[in-house]
Amino acid sequence: MRRPFYQWLMTQRNPVAADEIQTFANAAFYDQIFPKQSENFQEISSYLEENASYLQNMSVYDAAWEQYLRAED
């Protein structure tokens, strides 16, 4: 069983935010209603599209999801 996406994303945090995924992780950390227990791509995608003004481009989420899947397999 894989860990939730949010838990993986938090391992990508970096106070310097050298890339887009790190910037995404830093912002998600402060998002109080992020679906923290979800492992479902569509559920998280819908949430981000509707609620996450801090994510400028959904392709960043897509790239993060791909890294998450590779890390969790």
Rank of each mutant, 00 (worst) to 15 (best):
Q42H: 10
I21V: 07
Q37W: 15
V16A: 13
Q42D: 11
F34I: 09
A25W: 01
I44P: 00
A28I: 01
I21T: 05
Y6H: 11
N40D: 15
P15Y: 12
E20I: 10
A17M: 08
A17F: 06
F41N: 04
F5A: 02
D31R: 05
P15H: 13
N26Q: 15
F24A: 02
K36R: 14
N40M: 06
F24V: 01
Y6N: 09
Q22C: 05
Q37H: 15
Q12S: 05
D31A: 04
A25Y: 00
A28D: 03
S38A: 13
A25T: 03
V16R: 11
Q42R: 08
F34Y: 14
R13E: 04
Y30V: 08
P4I: 12
N40V: 13
F34N: 09
Q22R: 10
L9V: 04
A28L: 03
Q32K: 09
E39Q: 14
I33R: 12
F24M: 05
Q12D: 04
P35E: 11
Q32S: 07
S38R: 03
A18H: 08
E43I: 15
Q42I: 11
P35Q: 11
R13T: 09
Q42K: 09
F34E: 05
A17V: 10
I21R: 04
I21L: 02
Q12E: 10
P4H: 11
R13N: 07
E43S: 14
A25G: 03
T11R: 15
F29S: 10
Q12R: 14
A18I: 07
I21A: 02
T23Q: 09
M10Y: 02
E43Y: 07
A27Y: 03
D31S: 06
R13G: 00
A25D: 00
R13K: 14
Q42F: 07
D31N: 06
A28G: 06
E39F: 10
D19Y: 10
Q12T: 05
L9G: 01
Q22T: 06
Q12W: 01
S38P: 02
W8N: 02
I33C: 07
S38L: 03
K36S: 12
Q42G: 07
Q32I: 07
F41Q: 08
W8E: 04
F24N: 00
V16Q: 14
Q7K: 14
Q42N: 09
E20D: 12
D31M: 05
A18W: 08
N40I: 13
A28F: 00
I44V: 09
A28C: 10
I33S: 10
F41R: 01
E20Q: 12
T11S: 15
F34A: 05
Y30E: 12
A18F: 08
A27C: 11
